[in-house]
Computed example of a mutant assay.
Amino acid sequence: MRGLALVPYNTKIDFVGMRYIVYAFSILIILLSFGSLMFKGLNLGIDFKGGFLIEIRTSEKPDLAAMRSKLQKLELGEVKLQEFGDEHDLLIRIERQKGNEQAQAIALQKIKKTIGDNVDYRRVETVGAKVSQDLIQNGILAVIFALVGMLVYIWIRFEWHFGLCGILALIHDAIAVMGFYSLFNFEFNDTAFISILTTIGYSINDSVVIYDRIRENLRKYKKTPIADVINLSTNETLSRTILTVGTTVMSLLALCFFGGHVIRAFCIPILVGIVFGAFSSIFISANLLLFFNVRKKLAHAEEA
C-alpha cells in the first residue's frame, strides 16, 4: 500500500532532455536580476538607509493601525511600528529624510506633534550610515557563511562535484530573490536576508534528497547511463518535492492573504524564493552533474 502521491507512480519525465531550455531560462533570470540591480538598484529600507528610532510608552495599549495611518500621512517615507517589552511600549522607526540636519529636526518635530504629548518618550535616536553599512556587511557575510557551510556539508556527505552543483543552484536562487526585490521595488530591509537564507536552506534540502537518490541508483544500476539515472532519481523524488513545496506554499499564501501588510511584505519574497528553490532543485542541481564523470568518481571513492 502506497502513501499519498501527487505524481503517478513510474512517471517518466525527461528532465535531462529539457536541460538546455532550463539553462536558457535560468540565464535569462540571472541577466534580468543583474540588469535590474545595476540600473534600478534596491529599495533600501530604514535598516540600510538610516533614520529615526523613537521609543515611547503610552498610558493605554496603542492602536498600531491608527498610529501607522497618522504617521504615513506625514509622507516621511517608510514607517515601522513594533511592540516590545510591556504592551504599552512601542518602537517607531522612520527612514532618514533628504537634506541636512535641519531637515531631520523638522521631520522629528512633525512626528512628535502627530504622536502627541500624552506619551512618555523613553528614547529618541538617529540611525546613521555607519550602522546601516555594518548591517549590510553582516547580512552579506551571513549568506556567504551559509553557502560555504552547505558546500562543506555536501562535500563530506557526497562528493565535491555534488557540493559544487548544489552551491551553483543556490547562488541562482539567491540572485533570483535579489532580482525580485529590485524588479518589483520591494523594500530591502533586514528581513530580506532572512528570505534569502530561508530560500537557500529550503532549496538545498530538496537537492540533498535528489542527490541521495542519485547516489543510491548509481550503485543499483551500474550500467545505466548517468542521464537515465538522473531522470529516474528526479522522477522518484518528484512526488515528495511537490508535496513539500505545496504545503509550504499554502501556508505562505494564507499568511499573505490574512497576515496583514507587514507579514505580507515578509512572506511574498519567501514564497518567490521557495518556488525558485524547488525549480532549481528539480531542473538545475541534478542536471549539472552531467558535466562531471559522477559514476567514475563515485566508484573511486568507494574503492578508497
Rank of each mutant, 00 (worst) to 15 (best):
I13E: 04
D120Q: 15
L135V: 10
H161V: 13
T58F: 06
I167C: 04
N231L: 01
W155A: 14
Y23S: 10
L255I: 14
L170V: 09
K220S: 11
A142V: 07
K113M: 12
F266N: 08
F39G: 08
T248P: 06
T234F: 00
R123W: 00
F257T: 11
E236T: 07
G35T: 03
I27W: 00
V127W: 07
E75R: 15
N231C: 01
N205Q: 06
L253C: 08
K130P: 05
N293P: 04
G149K: 10
K297T: 00
I154D: 12
A129I: 09
L53E: 13
I230F: 01
W155C: 14
I230E: 01
R213L: 07
Q104K: 10
H300R: 03
V131C: 02
I194V: 11
V245D: 13
D212N: 09
Q137W: 08
R68I: 01
T114G: 01
M38S: 13
L147E: 01
G85Q: 05
K49D: 07
G3H: 05
D63A: 03
I263G: 11
F25A: 15
K223P: 01
D190Y: 11
R157S: 03
D117V: 09
L252V: 10
L290H: 02
I30T: 06
Q97I: 06
V208Q: 12
D134H: 08
W160V: 05
T241R: 00
I263N: 13
K112F: 13
V294Q: 02
I263E: 04
E216L: 03
N217K: 04
L168T: 14
G149V: 12
L108H: 00
S281L: 03
L290T: 08
V79R: 08
L164H: 06
V7D: 05
E303I: 05
M38A: 15
L290F: 02
K113E: 14
G149H: 06
S36E: 14
F180V: 15
I230W: 00
G51W: 00
T191L: 10
N287F: 01
I200T: 03
T126S: 09
L218P: 05
V245P: 07
D117L: 09
R19K: 14
I111S: 01
A174C: 07
Y181F: 15
K297D: 00
D173F: 03
F180C: 15
K80C: 08
K12Y: 10
S207D: 10
N189R: 13
C267I: 08
M250L: 14
V275C: 11
L164Q: 02
K70S: 15
F188E: 08
K70Y: 10
A265S: 12
G166N: 11
D63M: 07
F25V: 14
V79M: 01
V124W: 04
G3N: 11
E78P: 05
A227C: 12
G277R: 06
T126R: 12
L81C: 14
A304M: 06
Y23D: 09
A107V: 10
W160G: 06
R96N: 06
V275H: 03
R215T: 14
K98G: 15
G149A: 08
K112R: 12
T58V: 07
L298Y: 02
L91G: 09
T191S: 15
A103V: 09
I46C: 06
A66R: 15
K98Q: 14
A129W: 05
M18D: 11
I144T: 09
E87N: 05
I270V: 05
E187P: 07
M250H: 13
L298E: 11
S233V: 04
R213D: 12
Y221A: 04
Y23H: 10
V275D: 04
S36C: 11
